Computed example of a mutant assay.
Amino acid sequence: MTSMPAEERIGSYIKRAEQALLGAKNTAVRPAAVTVPQYAALLWLSEKPGISAAALARLCGVTPPTMNTVLKNLQERGLIERTPHELHRNVLETRLTDEGRSVMEVADAGAVAVERALAAEFTGEERELLIGLLGRCAGALDALR
């Protein structure tokens, strides 16, 4: 017997919701032939062209080596281009290609549909409360690192 019953562990509920969200988004972005991490990178690149791989990894919540793999795969497909920074030659700037923008838009349509379906499960007040509570969870867990 453990010192805390499984049904009282908030982390397991957060993990279950995360897995369900990832599964739904994987299905939603499949028509664009990208994974959720690839879609996340394309989405952030559409909003922050020229961002470095390290900064992109932080925004997408993955490690830098994982992001490098994601970017390598996107580059091989012609969805992004990487060029040396004007002043810092060892930093590569990453931007969407026209094809990358098109793929991102297809994937985004699916991902937005998932987000809207999820949001529709809650009233506006409940959404605000949930966002606040999840923010508190993240803050409390970040403080434990």
Results as ranks from 00 to 15, higher is better:
residue 6 A to G: 05
residue 7 E to V: 09
residue 8 E to G: 08
residue 9 R to M: 05
residue 9 R to G: 00
residue 10 I to N: 11
residue 10 I to V: 12
residue 10 I to P: 04
residue 12 S to T: 09
residue 13 Y to D: 07
residue 13 Y to G: 07
residue 13 Y to R: 10
residue 14 I to E: 01
residue 14 I to M: 11
residue 15 K to Y: 09
residue 15 K to A: 13
residue 16 R to P: 00
residue 16 R to S: 08
residue 16 R to Y: 02
residue 19 Q to F: 10
residue 19 Q to H: 10
residue 19 Q to L: 14
residue 21 L to F: 10
residue 22 L to T: 08
residue 23 G to S: 11
residue 24 A to L: 13
residue 25 K to Y: 07
residue 26 N to H: 07
residue 26 N to I: 05
residue 27 T to V: 14
residue 27 T to K: 13
residue 28 A to N: 05
residue 28 A to M: 06
residue 32 A to V: 11
residue 32 A to E: 05
residue 33 A to M: 09
residue 34 V to L: 07
residue 35 T to R: 03
residue 35 T to F: 00
residue 38 Q to Y: 04
residue 39 Y to G: 00
residue 41 A to M: 04
residue 41 A to I: 02
residue 42 L to C: 10
residue 42 L to M: 11
residue 42 L to K: 09
residue 42 L to A: 08
residue 44 W to C: 01
residue 44 W to D: 08
residue 46 S to R: 03
residue 48 K to W: 00
residue 48 K to A: 03
residue 50 G to H: 05
residue 52 S to A: 11
residue 54 A to E: 09
residue 54 A to L: 08
residue 55 A to C: 08
residue 57 A to L: 05
residue 58 R to F: 01
residue 60 C to R: 00
residue 61 G to E: 02
residue 62 V to W: 00
residue 63 T to A: 01
residue 63 T to V: 00
residue 66 T to C: 09
residue 67 M to E: 01
residue 67 M to D: 05
residue 68 N to E: 04
residue 69 T to W: 02
residue 69 T to V: 07
residue 70 V to G: 04
residue 71 L to D: 02
residue 71 L to C: 03
residue 71 L to N: 04
residue 71 L to G: 02
residue 72 K to R: 15
residue 73 N to L: 08
residue 74 L to I: 12
residue 74 L to R: 06
residue 74 L to H: 04
residue 74 L to F: 08
residue 75 Q to I: 00
residue 75 Q to D: 11
residue 76 E to M: 08
residue 77 R to T: 03
residue 78 G to C: 06
residue 79 L to H: 10
residue 80 I to M: 04
residue 82 R to Q: 12
residue 82 R to H: 04
residue 82 R to D: 01
residue 82 R to M: 09
residue 84 P to C: 07
residue 84 P to N: 02
residue 87 L to P: 00
residue 88 H to T: 15
residue 88 H to N: 15
residue 88 H to I: 15
residue 90 N to H: 12
residue 91 V to W: 12
residue 92 L to R: 13
residue 92 L to T: 05
residue 92 L to H: 15
residue 92 L to A: 14
residue 94 T to L: 05
residue 95 R to L: 08
residue 95 R to G: 00
residue 95 R to D: 03
residue 96 L to P: 04
residue 98 D to F: 03
residue 99 E to L: 14
residue 100 G to M: 06
residue 101 R to P: 02
residue 102 S to F: 09
residue 103 V to L: 06
residue 103 V to Y: 10
residue 104 M to H: 13
residue 104 M to C: 14
residue 104 M to P: 03
residue 106 V to Y: 10
residue 108 D to H: 14
residue 108 D to S: 15
residue 109 A to R: 11
residue 109 A to W: 06
residue 110 G to V: 08
residue 110 G to D: 14
residue 110 G to K: 08
residue 112 V to P: 01
residue 112 V to H: 03
residue 113 A to L: 14
residue 113 A to C: 07
residue 113 A to F: 13
residue 114 V to Q: 06
residue 114 V to A: 05
residue 115 E to H: 09
residue 115 E to F: 09
residue 116 R to F: 13
residue 116 R to E: 15
residue 117 A to T: 14
residue 117 A to R: 15
residue 118 L to T: 13
residue 122 F to N: 04
residue 122 F to D: 03
residue 123 T to D: 06
residue 123 T to Q: 07
residue 124 G to F: 07
residue 125 E to A: 12
residue 125 E to Q: 11
residue 125 E to V: 09
residue 126 E to K: 11
